[in-house]
Amino acid sequence: MIDDERCEGHGRCYSIAGDLFEPDEIGNGVVRRDGTVPAGREREAELAVENCPEQAISLVED
Protein backbone atom coordinates (compact mmCIF):
# COMPACT_ATOMS: atom_id res chain seq x y z
CA MET A 1 0.00 0.00 0.00
CA ILE A 2 1.02 3.63 -0.55
CA ASP A 3 0.82 6.28 2.16
CA ASP A 4 -0.79 9.17 0.26
CA GLU A 5 0.44 11.61 2.86
CA ARG A 6 4.05 10.69 2.11
CA CYS A 7 3.90 10.10 -1.66
CA GLU A 8 5.29 13.11 -3.56
CA GLY A 9 5.08 11.65 -7.06
CA HIS A 10 8.71 10.62 -7.68
CA GLY A 11 7.30 7.74 -9.73
CA ARG A 12 9.94 5.17 -8.87
CA CYS A 13 7.29 2.55 -8.01
CA TYR A 14 5.46 2.57 -11.34
CA SER A 15 8.75 2.81 -13.25
CA ILE A 16 10.14 -0.26 -11.52
CA ALA A 17 6.92 -2.24 -11.12
CA GLY A 18 4.47 -1.02 -13.74
CA ASP A 19 2.22 -4.04 -13.25
CA LEU A 20 1.76 -3.25 -9.58
CA PHE A 21 1.58 0.57 -9.59
CA GLU A 22 0.40 3.30 -11.94
CA PRO A 23 0.52 7.10 -11.97
CA ASP A 24 -2.55 9.20 -11.21
CA GLU A 25 -3.21 12.45 -13.11
CA ILE A 26 -0.56 14.36 -11.12
CA GLY A 27 2.06 11.62 -11.20
CA ASN A 28 1.53 10.23 -7.72
CA GLY A 29 1.71 6.46 -7.38
CA VAL A 30 -1.45 4.39 -7.12
CA VAL A 31 -1.66 0.68 -6.37
CA ARG A 32 -3.20 -1.27 -9.26
CA ARG A 33 -6.25 -3.49 -8.67
CA ASP A 34 -6.66 -4.55 -5.04
CA GLY A 35 -2.95 -4.33 -4.31
CA THR A 36 -2.34 -8.04 -3.99
CA VAL A 37 1.14 -8.91 -5.26
CA PRO A 38 0.81 -11.78 -7.78
CA ALA A 39 3.03 -14.83 -7.28
CA GLY A 40 6.42 -14.25 -8.87
CA ARG A 41 6.21 -10.48 -8.53
CA GLU A 42 7.48 -10.27 -4.96
CA ARG A 43 10.93 -8.99 -5.96
CA GLU A 44 9.45 -6.12 -8.00
CA ALA A 45 7.25 -5.16 -5.09
CA GLU A 46 10.24 -5.18 -2.73
CA LEU A 47 12.26 -3.03 -5.11
CA ALA A 48 9.44 -0.51 -5.32
CA VAL A 49 9.45 -0.31 -1.52
CA GLU A 50 13.23 -0.03 -1.33
CA ASN A 51 13.51 2.67 -3.99
CA CYS A 52 10.76 5.01 -2.85
CA PRO A 53 12.60 8.21 -1.85
CA GLU A 54 9.83 9.16 0.58
CA GLN A 55 9.55 5.64 2.07
CA ALA A 56 5.82 5.82 1.36
CA ILE A 57 5.27 2.19 0.33
CA SER A 58 4.81 -0.78 2.60
CA LEU A 59 4.17 -4.45 2.00
CA VAL A 60 1.53 -6.01 4.21
CA GLU A 61 1.36 -9.76 4.89
CA ASP A 62 -2.09 -11.34 4.60
Partner: peptide
Protein backbone atom coordinates in the same frame (compact mmCIF):
# COMPACT_ATOMS: atom_id res chain seq x y z
CA UNK B 1 19.10 -2.05 -7.81
CA UNK B 2 18.32 -0.44 -4.48
CA UNK B 3 18.84 3.26 -4.98
CA UNK B 4 16.65 5.51 -2.91
CA UNK B 5 18.44 8.67 -4.06
CA UNK B 6 17.32 12.23 -3.51
CA UNK B 7 18.43 13.77 -6.82
CA UNK B 8 15.02 15.38 -7.31
CA UNK B 9 14.71 16.49 -3.71
CA UNK B 10 12.58 15.20 -0.88
CA UNK B 11 9.20 16.25 0.46
CA UNK B 12 6.71 18.75 -0.92
CA UNK B 13 9.15 20.42 -3.31
CA UNK B 14 10.04 17.23 -5.23
CA UNK B 15 11.16 18.48 -8.65
CA UNK B 16 7.93 19.00 -10.58
CA UNK B 17 9.80 18.29 -13.83
CA UNK B 18 11.40 15.03 -12.72
CA UNK B 19 9.41 12.85 -15.14
Amino acid sequence: EVNRHAAFGLGIHRCAGSH
